[in-house]
Design a protein around this nucleic acid. Sequence first.
DNA 1: GCTTCTTTAGAACAAGCGTTCGATGGTACG
DNA 2: CGTACCATCGAACGCTTGTTCTAAAGAAGC
Lengths: 219, 219
Amino acid sequence: MSDETTPTTPLSGTPSPAASAASPRAPKLETLLAAAATTFATRGYSGTSMRDIAHDSGISLSGIYYYTRGKSSLLYEIQSRTIDALIASAAQALSTVTKPADQLLQFVENHISYSNDHPAFVRVLSHETAPDGTDERREAVELKRHEYVKVLRDILDRVRQEYAAPVPTSFAADMLFAMMSGPRQWGVSDTELNVGIASRLIYDLFVHGFTGGAAATRP
Amino acid sequence: MSDETTPTTPLSGTPSPAASAASPRAPKLETLLAAAATTFATRGYSGTSMRDIAHDSGISLSGIYYYTRGKSSLLYEIQSRTIDALIASAAQALSTVTKPADQLLQFVENHISYSNDHPAFVRVLSHETAPDGTDERREAVELKRHEYVKVLRDILDRVRQEYAAPVPTSFAADMLFAMMSGPRQWGVSDTELNVGIASRLIYDLFVHGFTGGAAATRP
DNA sequence: GCTTCTTTAGAACAAGCGTTCGATGGTACG
DNA sequence: CGTACCATCGAACGCTTGTTCTAAAGAAGC
């Protein structure tokens, strides 16, 4: 059911999104995907031409089609591998802690850390969507995205129960994802923060609020 | 310095982003901008063709050029008018209250309400950017966007002082904007919420946190 | 050296792009 | 009726798009 030239394995646990089954042409495919991801991330999917990708990857225009089926397949492969890696990475990170609040912090740290390591891939996953594809491939990505969201929702459900949180879980999950995907917009404060510090800030802001638990006066 | 066919007035206080100086061709320009905004919002700027806009607006392809200079001018006009209207609307909303916390709620309510009334315009403002324009027009929009952000930052500064909030202002502002621009991503909970309720939820989540001020235990 | 398979890329393709031109019908006014 | 201006649009322009075709260089085995 894979659409690529090379059948892709689930890449169990591998952190890099551009790592798949061992194949003679796999390494260059990864170079290609990495170049495509950065270009998609900066110019947007529609704003990126295959010639742009050819230039950025160092592969000739027609050479690209030896490694991939076409433009939309590139996008799909990037998104698919990224969400797979994100899910696997989160699962591994969560296996080390049990307390709901700790799991939440762990989830945030994992997401921020992964976004910091592979910014283009995560940005393409969360901001781009293929216009042409009538495909079921888009639905496949959407399905896995929901799976990833559900991981967070389940954590939030447990946190919510523990602290009798008044905010609906799914709404809170969306807001937390918005925060974590936030940069590159609006004020764009020079967030060259350490991953750990940034994660902690987001976690604290999300859990305790801007006032930090003080001023808990609710009208 | 205006780039449109018709010189645009600052539209002082008018809530609709597509309302400018009185001109014989103003009304159709507004129709055009509204159509362009919705199309840009759904397909993205690069993914939208002038023929798409012609089809969606009911104006012929060449007819569009009677009302605007070209594609990038359409984007600029949409963004410029929207940020102008947003600033004016916020200023008016804030004039009714003085307490920092109240002003914050007022700002959030105003932004959410405006986004609810003109979703396409706000989305184009916050998510799209012209690739072609070497222009200073983009910088002009960016300048006004910063002006709008500064309004929020100043409010947050006062709130921060009052409650000794531990989170940096600019960082918090970015996070709040991310929350307010959040929908249409990730889990996408069916947020057909009432504007007032949604604003309140975001305000509470931002100020008091997910746990609502409970569990203010900070390691 | 010959054959076979993999990898590369230049050239060309039809389709779509943003934009311009020239012409046309419609009012308004003398 | 005639003239001037406003609004509109079909047709065409040159260029870029995603994709394919065809050929050739390199590696491997005999």
